[in-house]
Computed example of a mutant assay.
Amino acid sequence: MTDAPHFSIDPAAFAADPYPALARMRREAPIAFVPELGATLLTRRDDIHRQEKRIEVFSSHQPDGLMSVLMGENMMRKDGDAHQAERRALFPALSPRTVAQHWRSVFEAAANDILDDLAPLGACDLVTDYAMPVSAAALIAITGLSGMTRAEMDRVSQHMIDGCANYLGDPEVEARCHAATALIDSHIDRSFDMPPPKSALAVQRAAGLPMQSLRANIKLVISGGQNEPRDAIAGIAWALLTHPDQLALIRRGENTWQDAFAEYARWISPIGMSPRIVARADSVGGVRFDPGDRVFLMFSSAGRDEAHFDRPDAFDVTRDTGAAIPFGAGPHFCAGAAAARCLIAEVALPLLFDRLPGLRLDGPVPFKGWAFRGPTSMPVAW
């Protein structure tokens, strides 16, 4: 058991807004055991950046972890050669070249179709009526699960990530997660013999991955490829609508949609943390870690580390975000980063603000979550 100082949180308050508690941890106990989460949190950027790469100590291999138990042992829960082999098998579906040459046009067609339906309405919930279906359409294409509806894709992704963040052990959350994974397996079975070209299903099948690995990696792509782009699309739109001066910078070409995406991912990281398990005894910053200790690398806290970012709680698209690590920094760097940047910054956001002139907020925008964070609703009008 680690000898890290204890730092207690109110789980409800942490889910509502984790940033005040994380700021206190960075100041008072940057490596702290949080009993309510049963894990030791690393909250400073440099500690996370350095220790994430030390897979011999902070291992992703967690056969008893929530993700492995609920979704199967995917490549994110493997290290070394095993991880790299499955990453190479999946890469042809997610490479920057495939995204640019194959998926971008798919993303644009789906976004324009959705906006065709929305434009005459004059108002909508941007989360459920735009960000969700745009992300789901992209993910249906990338996974190759062409029989799945957009609503199904959003639901199974949410229920899986809820399950993976179910550190309080809610049985209803676990049951919904099991139902979601069963539905995904049924769609994999339906599409397996003739998967769409370039899809994650097709490239893994062609690489000859074992069926259990293929299934687990499809679930991984869904868990990270639906809710996070959905939350980022809606969240960045909210950030720009509440900072009209910065939206004006983008409209004038002084800054870019990619700048807005990078700054938002630093400021309100859609993926707030990544779990690790201690594989062998070690110490970091004077704190002892023992085998079996659970560790959370808090990417959300790294993005607001005062040692690297001036006014870290402010949204500023002119900021140099080079030190931020919202996609990770080690061998587990997000495999879908190129697809996410394309979908969000090259397609969904520019089309949204182009096709819905006069877009404005039309009500409060609540946020929730700490392991995964985003707006739960966003009423807008135009």
Rank of each mutant, 00 (worst) to 15 (best):
Leu42Asn: 10
Ala345Tyr: 06
Thr376Gln: 06
Ile218His: 05
Arg294Phe: 11
Arg288Gln: 13
Cys164Met: 14
Arg150Trp: 06
Ser377Val: 06
Arg54Tyr: 05
Ala206Leu: 09
His332Gly: 12
Leu37Val: 07
Pro35Tyr: 01
Ala4Tyr: 01
Pro275His: 01
Gly253Val: 01
Arg50Asn: 04
Trp257Thr: 02
Val57Gln: 10
Ala182Pro: 08
Glu86Met: 08
His159Ala: 13
Asp46Gln: 03
Asp185Pro: 07
Pro350Thr: 03
Thr128Glu: 15
Ala329Leu: 08
Ser223Thr: 13
Ile140Phe: 06
Pro120His: 14
Leu22Glu: 09
His308Val: 07
Ala23Met: 07
Trp382Gln: 02
Gly80Leu: 12
Ala337Gly: 08
Ile325Tyr: 11
Arg190Leu: 14
Ala279Leu: 07
Asp290Asn: 07
Asp17Gln: 07
Glu73His: 07
Phe33Ser: 08
Val203Asn: 04
Arg88Ala: 11
Asp316Gly: 10
Ser68Gly: 02
Arg319Ala: 13
Asn112Leu: 15
Asp231Glu: 00
Ala111Gly: 03
Ala248Gly: 05
Met71Gly: 12
Val156Ile: 02
Leu121Ser: 15
Ser105Gln: 15
Ile9Cys: 03
Asp245Pro: 07
Phe353Asp: 05
Val380Lys: 06
Met132Gln: 15
Met148Asn: 06
Gly163Met: 02
Gln258Pro: 00
Glu174Phe: 00
Phe353Lys: 09
Gly163Lys: 02
His6Ala: 15
Glu174Val: 11
Ile250Gln: 09
Lys53Cys: 13
Ile271Glu: 11
Thr321Asp: 14
Ala151Trp: 06
Met75Trp: 01
Tyr19Ile: 08
Ile9Arg: 01
Cys334Trp: 12
Val284Leu: 07
Trp267Leu: 02
Ile55Pro: 09
Phe327Tyr: 15
Trp370Glu: 02
Ala32Trp: 03
Cys164Thr: 13
Val278Asp: 03
Gly292His: 10
Gly224Tyr: 00
Asn166Ser: 13
Asp154Tyr: 00
Ala206Asp: 15
Arg97Thr: 14
Ala281Ser: 14
Ala29Asp: 05
Pro244Phe: 03
Arg230Leu: 00
Arg294Lys: 13
Trp382Val: 04
Phe353Gly: 09
His332Thr: 08
Pro357Tyr: 06
Ala339Glu: 02
Leu240Pro: 12
Asp310Thr: 13
Glu263Thr: 03
Asp64Leu: 14
Glu28Tyr: 04
Asp362Gly: 13
Ala12His: 07
Asn166Lys: 13
Gln158Met: 06
Cys164Gln: 07
Ala136Val: 03
Ala202Trp: 10
Met153Thr: 11
Ala39Ser: 10
Phe367Pro: 03
Asn74Gln: 05
Asp362Glu: 14
Asp125Cys: 06
Ile325Pro: 05
Pro171Leu: 05
Met298Asn: 00
Lys198Ser: 13
Glu152Met: 00
